[in-house]
Design a protein around this nucleic acid. Structure first.
Lengths: 350, 350
DNA sequence: ATGAAAGCGCTAACAA
DNA sequence: TTGTTAGCGCTTTCAT
């Protein structure tokens, strides 16, 4: 039971060279059956395991991906994080997590730390990146991809849902339901997802001769959402919206609560509420939230795909913006227009 | 803008030795002001940053903590993960995340991978560990601490809430509220948290001359919780419980939904429901869940403290089981006994 | 306080 | 297919 077994000890015991052992542990190597057997035996007897760090140093590839996440309060992100981590593990990579929350210094500091770790790639979940850090990545040859954010920076791949299509779909659905006083509770102005959803939402409204009836900003927080709801809805009935599109599900739950419990309004009879994300909790019967699904599985798969492509064949990989379309999931929080296509059968009740 | 600047180039440019540069970048080092200035200038001009990997190799300390998490669906874990990661970052460490979900192979495989990464320590969140892997950690000198799980393995520090006190408090609260048919919806039988909560809960019931009126297992999943609820409550009124203690909040939400929407029961008028964890969503007005708070902040702080103590002073550190007491948070899902101490003032409404 | 030199454990030419 | 030989970029004695 040695404390640490090195490749050298295995080589010695197996009666072969150090390189032979190294080759044995390298997937696409060339070792004779005989050598392989000897090495395997020796390694097992000694309980040898290759040192990942040393391997990374020597090869220049750490098989570690820096994963920056801003905030795990919104249930969409834990879900994404779990899937992301799983997908990476399946490809032989691991996620080194960096929280970019306000407490942990700004994003540039965090990025510097990540780069110090010699990661093979970076995934930025819901985080925007400065253009000089971006160029620092390029010059160091570290690929980065944005998850659920876009940015007009040269050479950055981004994966999002089709936010414009989503925003438009919500507008059309709400208008088809006969709503004529449609409001929007936005998230944080700086978020590209937010911007795109709202832009398309308003455009669709205007294309139909309507316009946004009211608007407030919820900051993607529960407190913010509650305040925004009161701001918009705590007014005389004749100035009250009959529908609201909330920038994400996380806020939408609180919006519904305030509507029902503080303002005494019925959802969807008095107000239709539509969210965005389709987080697992949207199915909860007390909310039964109508929402646009962000297909986390697909988004994650594309993110990992794009990143590994850049890592493994940097020449051919092209930066692009991948947009994943997702359906509007009809549940009980918004009035369903007569004759509207039926609800998704896969949406099991609990 | 070189692709990679090494310590050697800095040394050369500064006109000092490699070691001088190394010392400059080592917190508690001894460098003269003059040398420091030269090194700093050279480093800045070259855009030099120490290579964390190389440093880890040479020093034998990676400043990386392996963090194993099983499942991020239950909102308690994202919260804990965020805080854990932040706390580590603050101390100069980072979390390398390993998902131990069913898809990712068993825990032993995962542990082996972690160990391969030369981590300085390991945190197992909600995961049990085999005793031979545990001993492998010891022999490699890698400290590990269990978060929200205990295990009777020599030398393992564990941090949990005071599950026994919590279980007892719920029983006493429910009995004081006049409930005489108290049920329990358990999680997964293998979880130590579950076991402790239930044991103390039953003991308190029995100490007062009652006994568990009904019991079912929800497996810590939403589907399981729904099924368990129907099993216990979808019976003639005279055999129906008047209160239920659910093993965690995550399941409790679904329990309430099934009670209300499928079985037409009122909460808390017909059935009182109490959860465990006090996840952020417990405040949501549609549930307003009475629950035992697990003080994630404190648990995290203790976990990190215990782990770093083991890392930084292995001699003096003693394995122990740290139990964090948490209050019962009174909200609306359970009948409050007359004269019961007032509700926590810090529990702001949304 | 500083520099020289010996590794840390492994990979990757290169030669055989 | 195998072994030899340089490193990878840094820390850390040990002299000076």
């Amino acid at each position: 039971m040695n404390e640490k077994v090195t490749i050298l000890q295995v080589a010695e015991r197996a009666g072969v060279s150090q390189s032979a052992v190294s080759r044995f542990f390298t997937p696409g190597a060339s070792v004779s059956k005989k050598t392989a057997a000897k090495v395997q035996a020796a390694a097992e007897e000694l309980g040898y395991r290759p040192n990942v760090l040393a391997r990374a140093m020597a090869s220049g590839r750490s098989r570690i991906i820096g994963l920056v996440v801003a905030y795990l309060g919104n249930p969409f992100y834990p879900e994404a994080l779990e899937k992301l981590s799983n997908a990476l593990q399946k490809r032989g990579y691991h996620a080194l997590v960096f929280m970019a929350s306000r407490t942990a210094g700004n994003i540039d500091t965090v990025m510097q730390e990540i780069l110090d770790h010699q990661v093979d790639g970076i995934i930025l979940a819901s985080v925007a990146m400065s253009s000089d850090i971006s160029s620092r990545c390029r010059q160091l040859g570290v690929p980065a991809v944005l998850f659920n954010r876009t940015q007009d920076i040269e050479g950055l791949t981004a994966v999002t849902s089709d936010n414009r299509a989503g925003g438009r779909a919500v507008a059309e659905f709400l208008m088809a339901g006969g709503h004529r006083r449609i409001a929007h509770i936005a998230g944080w102005e700086g978020a590209s997802t937010q911007r795109d959803r709202e832009a398309a939402f308003r455009a669709a409204l205007e294309a139909a001769g309507q316009s946004l009836f009211a608007r407030a900003c919820g900051q993607f927080t529960l407190e913010g959402a509650a305040a925004a709801t009161r701001e918009i809805f705590d007014v005389p009935a004749e100035r009250r919206p009959d529908a609201v599109f909330v920038a994400n599900d996380y806020m939408a739950f609180t919006v519904i609560d305030v509507l029902r419990h503080d303002l005494g309004l019925r959802v969807p009879e008095d107000v239709s509420v539509v969210g965005y994300d389709d987080v697992p909790q949207a199915r909860l019967r007390s909310y039964s939230l109508t929402t646009v699904r962000q297909r986390a599985n697909v988004m994650v798969a594309e993110t990992v795909e794009a990143l590994l492509e850049q890592i493994e064949s940097p020449e051919t990989a092209q930066p692009r913006h991948i947009q994943i379309k997702g359906p509007l999931i009809l549940r009980g929080s918004a009035r369903i227009p007569a004759g509207w296509p039926q609800k998704d059968k896969t949406d099991v009740r609990l």
